[in-house]
Amino acid sequence: MRSRHVALFLAPSLLLMAAVFLVPLGQMAATSVDGAALSARAYEELAASTLFRRVLANTFEISLGSMLATLLLGYPIAYHLSRVPPARRAIYMVMVLLPFWTSILVKSFAFTVILGEQGIVNSLLRFAFGPTAALPLLFNRTGAIVGMVHYLLPFMVFPILVSLLAQGSDLHKAARVMGAGRTRIFLRVTLPLSLPGVLAGCVMTLVLSLGSFVTPELLGGRKDLMMANLVDFYTRVSLDWGVSSAIAVILLVLTGMLIVALARLPGEHKLI
């Protein structure tokens, strides 16, 4: 292909990305330092703010908690998918893909019905253990994490599934012939070989959860903000665009570092 044609094919996409992605992010970074003034005012305010420190801690606690819970639920799914015959796998896969393509608002709304004071879970609890058995599951950290785990699960399942399917069954046969039991095979062969997928899934879910906005806003505690919710607060309520930009820049740097770490992982789990 001649370079003239390459340029012609790429020009529209590059123009769009430059004008609607790179320039806006650049403007945001500039806003965070007050443009040409290069002032560190917004960052100094954040460094001194107890609210920001609490939100930063919340963000990491909720994200790490969600990541671990997602791993605990995602691994059995990936393991099950890797062990069923390919024709049946496609059917099970729908159950992972449908939530992946379902609007986050639909899921959030459904969880308000499932987890609420009069919700399905609490009705079942009252039915089973008497009228005082209800648990606070919504508008607190539990609600936020349940919603996040649901949103993150496909991103954990896919990389683990890839690393489980790449193992081939010869290794397991060999281990069995040598006398290893099922648990031993899992712990000594399957699990260690799937660790690159686990790691890729963990980094991916962490990246996504650090920036999540809708789930903590709709299912989480009203005072249990995450970074993205604070960005919204400073943009719309305080109208302090310098501070909201600074928070977004910090979030961008944090996730950027994680993505670079992910790209350096060994193996075929590269995203790009």
């Binding site: 590059l14 945001m28 806003t31 920036g211 960005v231 665009w241 977004a248 979030l251 996730t255």
Partner: peptide, 24 residues
């Protein structure tokens, strides 16, 4: 590098994109 720039919006937190676009 070009491919990475074109695919970057998939990985950047949407809230950062949203705020950038809002200001822009």
């Amino acid at each position: 590098l070009l491919g990475m720039v074109l695919l970057a919006p998939m990985l950047v937190p949407t809230i950062a994109v949203a705020l950038g676009l809002y200001l822009y």
